[in-house]
């Protein structure tokens, strides 16, 4: 069975990255949803990101 058709038969279990309102509304509908407290790498600080990229290499 294709993965998409499999999804149609399963219970939807969601991970939410981004708008908190989406998470809230799903939770209110009793959907199993995990909200990710997403942070941009190094708080979006460009200098830090450059350093981290150097690290990765």
């Amino acid at each position: 069975m294709s993965k998409i058709n499999k999804l149609f038969r399963e219970e939807l279990k969601v991970v939410n990255l981004g708008l908190e309102s989406f998470h809230r509304e799903l939770r209110e509908k009793k959907v199993e949803v995990v909200h990710i407290n997403w942070r941009p790498c190094a708080g979006g600080n460009k200098r830090m990101i450059e350093l981290l990229n150097k690290l990765k290499k």
Partner: peptide, 17 residues
């Protein structure tokens, strides 16, 4: 990983400047 002016904890996507 502590590297130059930053401390990186990659598994939680946190870095300290």
């Amino acid at each position: 990983i502590i590297f130059e002016e930053l401390i990186d904890i990659p598994q939680v996507s946190l870095a300290i400047d």
